[in-house]
Each structure stands twice: as structure tokens, then as C-alpha cells.
């Protein structure tokens, strides 16, 4: 195991760990470039981008980069080798996403019934639906990529 303080973020498997370190490093370099670009633009056009929005973009951009690289790498479902295991895992993903959607909708409805919701109910439900869809899509793509990769490695 590499001697680094981010060890707690890294998986136990050596291949996954090395790739994750590469993704973190790539994201850090991209972030550095983005900060330099922002510094230069703020010098010449200070009102061009709001600083809070710029920081939020940097934050979500970095997380999204690492997340997308991880999903597309096909490393997540490292043990899914057979058609049967693939179908079973796909079912688990559907159940997980549907449960998330149902739990969030029920809790939102209860918050709404007790009058503690600051936003309109429909907006909350739309956001929940998008989140559930995103959860399903990312898991599904990751599973498909992993299965495709693993199929070529089977003995």
C-alpha cells in the first residue's frame, strides 16, 4: 500500500488503487489549470464570473471528473464475469434506484404534509426523479463497462 494520507480514500485492490491515484492526479492537474485560467480572467475581466459560482464549478467539476473516469473504467464491478451475475446485478441496481426514488418521494410528501418544505412539492419530486435516474444510469453504465471488460479476461 502506498504511503499517503489519502489511503483512506483508496480501495484495497492494487489495480483499482493505482487507477484511482491516476484519476485523482489528473483531476488535480485539471483543477490547477482551471485556477490559473480563472486568475488570469479575473485580472482582466473581474465581473466575468461570480467567485462563488467559479468555486462551485471547480468543486463539482473535480468530483464529476473522477466519478466519470471511475464509471467508464469498468473497475467497479470487478467480480461480474458471467451473464447470470450480470443479470442479477442489473436487478439489484433497478431495485436500489427504485427504492431510493420511493423513499425520497415518501419523505418529501411527509415533509410537505407537516409544512416544513421551503420549495414547491413538484420541484422536489423532479429533483428526486433526476437523482434516481442519475443513480440508475451511472450504476448501469458502470456495470455494463465492467461486464464487457471482465468477459475478455475470463479463463
Amino acid at each position: 500500500m502506498e504511503k499517503t494520507w489519502i489511503r483512506f480514500l483508496l480501495p484495497d485492490d492494487e489495480y483499482k488503487r493505482r487507477n484511482m491515484l491516476v484519476y485523482f492526479a489528473e483531476a488535480a492537474i485539471l483543477q490547477l489549470i482551471a485556477i490559473i485560467v480563472l486568475l488570469v480572467t479575473s485580472r482582466f475581466k473581474p465581473s466575468l464570473i461570480d467567485s462563488e459560482i467559479a468555486l462551485l464549478c471547480l468543486l463539482f467539476g473535480t468530483i464529476a471528473y473522477i466519478w466519470i473516469r471511475y464509471i467508464l473504467s469498468g473497475m467497479e464491478f470487478a467480480e461480474i464475469m458471467t451473464e447470470k451475475a450480470y443479470r442479477r446485478e442489473r436487478k439489484v441496481i433497478v431495485i436500489k434506484s427504485t427504492s431510493f426514488l420511493l423513499i425520497m418521494c415518501v419523505s418529501m410528501l411527509s415533509f410537505y404534509a407537516f409544512g416544513t418544505m421551503a420549495v414547491p412539492l413538484i420541484e422536489g419530486i423532479i429533483v428526486t426523479f433526476i437523482a434516481a435516474l442519475l443513480l440508475f444510469l451511472t450504476n448501469y453504465v458502470s456495470l455494463k463497462r465492467s461486464y464487457q471488460k471482465n468477459r475478455e479476461l475470463i479463463d
Binding site: 485492490d13 492494487e14 467480480e79 475478455e152 479476461l153 479463463d155
Partner: peptide, 17 residues
């Protein structure tokens, strides 16, 4: 103590352990 995927990649010569 690695995943089956890692073993497969090593065997295929696609990952240097």
C-alpha cells in the same frame, strides 16, 4: 487478496503488478 479482474488483467499482460 485482489479482485478476479486484476488477475485476468495480469494474465493478459494488460497490467504490470
Amino acid at each position: 487478496k485482489v479482485t478476479r479482474q486484476t488477475i485476468g488483467l495480469i494474465e493478459k499482460g494488460e497490467y504490470n503488478p
